[in-house]
């Protein structure tokens, strides 16, 4: 996922109440690491050198960004197609609104779910309010995962569907800060 935004425009505008203030140095750290972490013995020293601050300062700021959730985590992101995960299903569920947070969190903990969100319904055409992406090698395997979600939801599931992707029409690799 990527996102184009000029440095000067990142961002003080409050939105959904969970924006976090970033200063120029934070932005420089993001800019230096958004494409990836340097593959050298002391990667944070490397970033520090690029920006002109100490490695301790880089570590301190990145720790803080991780604590407040600006950095979800530092990790390798697999290319799931290359790893043989070719069946990518968007599973959608109709669960009672008063239980969605409880049930959404449970579904989110399943190891094969990569994204799990509460989204709006559009009645009568679209009754599903819980979205969970699942990744599997084959459609058959994906459908087994779907039934595991159904088991977990139990009576909380009043209906579901699975939308498999058949074609990537666009996939850009944008920058958070240009």
């Amino acid at each position: 996922m990527s996102f184009v935004m000029a440095t000067s425009q990142v961002k003080q505008t409050p939105q959904s109440g969970h924006n976090v203030h970033l200063d120029d140095i934070d932005r420089k750290i993001i800019q230096a690491t958004q494409a990836g972490l340097p593959l050298v013995s002391r990667p944070y020293d490397d970033i520090a050198m690029q920006i002109g601050i100490s490695a301790d300062e880089v570590l301190k700021r990145m720790c803080k960004m991780q604590q407040c959730g600006i950095i979800r985590r530092i990790a390798a992101v697999p290319n799931h197609y290359a790893l043989g995960y070719k069946a990518n299903g968007m599973t959608v569920w109709d669960v009672p609104d008063d239980r969605i947070d409880e049930l959404g969190k449970q579904v989110g903990t399943l190891e094969f779910v990569s994204h799990c969100y509460h989204r709006p319904r559009y009645l009568p055409g679209w009754r599903y309010n819980l979205f969970a992406m699942v990744h599997a090698h084959t459609r058959e395997e994906a459908l087994q995962l779907v039934s595991r979600i159904a088991d977990l939801l139990g009576e909380g599931c009043r209906g579901h569907d699975v939308l498999f992707s058949t074609r990537i029409l666009k996939k850009t690799c944008m920058r958070l800060i240009s």
Partner: peptide, 10 residues
């Protein structure tokens, strides 16, 4: 490989 940023929080 690297930090995964939450663009919405930004």
């Amino acid at each position: 490989f690297g930090p995964m940023y939450d663009a919405q929080k930004m």
